[in-house]
Simulated assay, not measured.
Amino acid sequence: MTDARTRPPSQADVAALAGVSTQTVSRVANDSTNVDGETRERVLSAMRVLGYRRNSAARALATGRFHMLGVITFDLAAHGNARTVEAVSRAAQAAGYAVTVAGAEEPTEGAVRQAFTRLSGQAVDGIVIVEAQILDRPGLQLPPGVPVVIADGDPEQRFASVDINQAAGARAATTHLLALGHRTVWHVAGPQDSYSARRRAAAWRRTLEDAGAPVPPLLFGDWTAASGYEAGRALAARPEVTAVFAANDHMALGVLRALHEAGRPVPAEVGVVGFDDVAESAYFQPPLTTVHQDFEEVGRQCVALLLEQIATGRSVAGTASLVPPRLVRRASSGPPG
């Protein structure tokens, strides 16, 4: 027989302490709306005092919801992906949901379907897909029944999506360098299969064209500092290069090293701007001017769109939200020497 002093508190214990019925405690535990505010607070207070924990399985049976969100991502090591997953997790936790992550080794339809099925089997209420360049492929279908929100791109707007305004960020970086007096701006772009990289490169090009500035040839990297270093060595060898916009801060770090080794001081001879505003960018030498991305807001909006679909049962496909970035000016950008 279980000792009453050691058994976990029950709904009957909570009801007795709060002075309500066990049915009322059950309604509060299942987030029912037909409980007035004062009574709900009294029950929640009794739960806290007794250390009562809600039975998640029973709650799911009663409400049809599991209070679990899934995330599919292709590269959790990438800064933007990791920050987005972290932001979604924080926002979900604040809303009373847990998060489970399924990695897809490559952005193929089969890998996405496999990850989607895996998460569906874990009884998630909704799924966020991060950096979904797979959606560039027409005709991709995901199994019905689970709400989906895309973080970082859905060009055909088949699903609800939330993203940083990549074009505005690239435009701000390029315009900043042009306004300092540089004749043009060279660009170290991200991988050609990245939706974010393509949008940043397209906005860089349009900004130069709108300003009547020459458009230099693109250099490509793979988001790593090593690839930025290789591009930076090529740029450092060209005396006409006075301004560089790198598509992320890690590649900008590689560019900075290559310019330093070539004896081309930053910003006295070459101005450099990155994109992301990683925590370390303020401590680069020199501190990096960059574009800050508000991943916390991306996470909040992704979760809000999922919860709206979960609560109403209605799709919000086609809803596209763009979170504004901001330019952070530091010492790596200056007028041409």
Rank of each mutant, 00 (worst) to 15 (best):
148 V>W: 01
242 T>N: 08
170 A>S: 10
186 W>P: 00
265 P>C: 14
259 L>H: 08
176 H>G: 04
257 R>Q: 05
254 G>A: 11
253 L>N: 01
184 T>Q: 14
206 R>H: 09
252 A>E: 02
179 A>L: 12
268 A>T: 15
168 A>N: 00
152 D>S: 04
147 P>K: 01
254 G>L: 12
172 A>L: 14
191 P>K: 11
177 L>W: 00
157 Q>R: 15
194 S>R: 04
215 V>N: 09
203 A>C: 10
251 M>N: 07
250 H>D: 15
196 S>Q: 10
223 W>E: 08
186 W>G: 00
165 N>E: 11
169 G>D: 00
224 T>H: 10
255 V>F: 03
239 P>W: 03
186 W>C: 11
169 G>W: 04
159 F>L: 05
257 R>K: 08
236 A>W: 02
263 G>F: 07
252 A>F: 01
175 T>V: 11
224 T>K: 08
235 L>Y: 06
163 D>H: 09
161 S>R: 06
232 G>N: 09
207 T>H: 10
222 D>P: 03
204 W>S: 08
168 A>S: 09
218 L>Y: 02
266 V>W: 13
154 D>M: 13
231 A>Q: 05
230 E>V: 03
142 L>S: 06
158 R>M: 05
152 D>G: 01
247 A>I: 10
148 V>Q: 01
177 L>A: 11
247 A>S: 15
192 Q>H: 12
150 I>Q: 11
243 A>F: 03
237 A>P: 04
150 I>H: 08
253 L>P: 01
